Amino acid sequence: MGKIVIGTLLWLGIVPFLMGALLLSFLKREEDGAVQCMVTGYLEMFAVCQILIVPLILTEVPFHVFSQMLAVVYLIMAAVGLIRTRKWIWKMMTEMARGLLHHSWTIYMAGGAVLVQAYYYIQYMVTNLDDAYYVAVATTAIQTDTMYRYSPYTGRAVTGFNLRYCLSPFSMFQAALSRWIGVHPSTLDHTILAPMLVILAYLVYWSMGKLLFAKENRQNKEKDSTEKLTGLFILFLSIVHVTSYYCIRNQGSVLLVRIWQGKATLASVLIPFLFYHCYRMKCRPQEKGNMLILLTAMFSCCLVSSMGIALPVVMLGIFALLFGLFQKNSRYFGKMLAGCLPCALYGILYIVLKSV
């Protein structure tokens, strides 16, 4: 049990935080705090996995080779992040400790609501028919030391690749995590990864709230603080989510019932992040690294679901029209088009491999 706790803290807490701090330090975005470090770190983990794994799957590299390569890359990036940003991290941790009891009451209420929602994944488990494929694919990869070479339904070897899943292999990322932490993929998905993804989703919403309610974006700057309004924003979203189970396919439902599935991660974490980041690019065009973070997010979308190759392009297209074409901002319009390149790459690859 102790090894599982340590592995969870390492791979789902420390490593993504240090990876995010590393990237933000290179981009000189030290004004971003611990929340942005964690969110950016997860995006890096997803994007690095996507870039690394697709060629390995298509060349039929064993699963253990991929798992070891990915672990080495993550640990190197985290180690460099710790060395490079240790003073900044210490400063962030010190400021967080000093301000722990000096936040608005809405922040504590919002934090409690989020933790309760995350806890329900630990205490209870909900399964559906999609688990028969996604969890079984991860289990099959570990047991056979292959990636998408055996059917998770029958256990028989397959003659070709199911390209929809091979180009968006989120299950292989989960299989690697389960091997590193030392738990079964089903335990990882339902009990460990799911609550962490719930917290990650609300960290994205926290970032969104701080941007929407920043003083420069509000007419009345004195009535309420940005922190108080952001806490109310999170509380409002929590109420929306916990009352969303009137349909199994809306965003609130997938967030609290099956967020470990790639398409649910796309809907709950990555699409909201794209909304936040594209709006931030419009509000703060002078910031460095906006395009790099956008491309990282788009690669992440491609990892989690085949729908992540198409739907994020729609999101970027909407922002390109609203803040690029309609406002005659050619620079912003060009950035949105450039952000579609990862999705275009995997879309073209799918068409080429399908026609062979």
Rank of each mutant, 00 (worst) to 15 (best):
A110E: 02
A110M: 11
A113N: 04
A113R: 00
V114N: 06
V116G: 03
Q117P: 06
Y119A: 15
Y120V: 13
Y121F: 15
I122G: 02
Q123Y: 13
Q123K: 12
Q123I: 13
Y124T: 15
Y124I: 11
Y124V: 14
V126T: 14
V126E: 13
N128K: 11
N128L: 14
D130L: 12
D131M: 13
D131S: 14
A132Y: 12
Y133D: 04
Y134W: 15
T140D: 12
T140H: 00
A141G: 09
A141K: 09
I142H: 07
I142R: 15
I142A: 06
T144M: 11
T144W: 02
T144S: 13
D145R: 12
D145W: 02
T146I: 12
M147L: 04
M147I: 15
Y148C: 04
Y148Q: 05
S151Q: 11
P152R: 12
Y153D: 10
T154E: 12
A157E: 14
V158G: 06
V158P: 07
T159D: 15
N162V: 10
N162E: 11
N162H: 10
S168C: 07
F173G: 03
Q174Y: 01
Q174R: 09
A175N: 06
A175R: 00
L177I: 04
R179L: 11
R179H: 02
I181D: 02
G182H: 03
V183L: 06
H184D: 15
S186M: 14
L188D: 05
D189R: 09
L193Q: 00
L193W: 10
M196T: 08
L200G: 02
A201L: 02
L203W: 01
V204W: 01
Y205E: 08
Y205D: 04
W206T: 01
W206I: 01
S207R: 05
G209W: 01
K210Y: 09
K210C: 06
F213V: 03
K215S: 07
K215L: 04
K215R: 12
Q219D: 06
Q219N: 07
S225L: 08
T226G: 05
E227I: 05
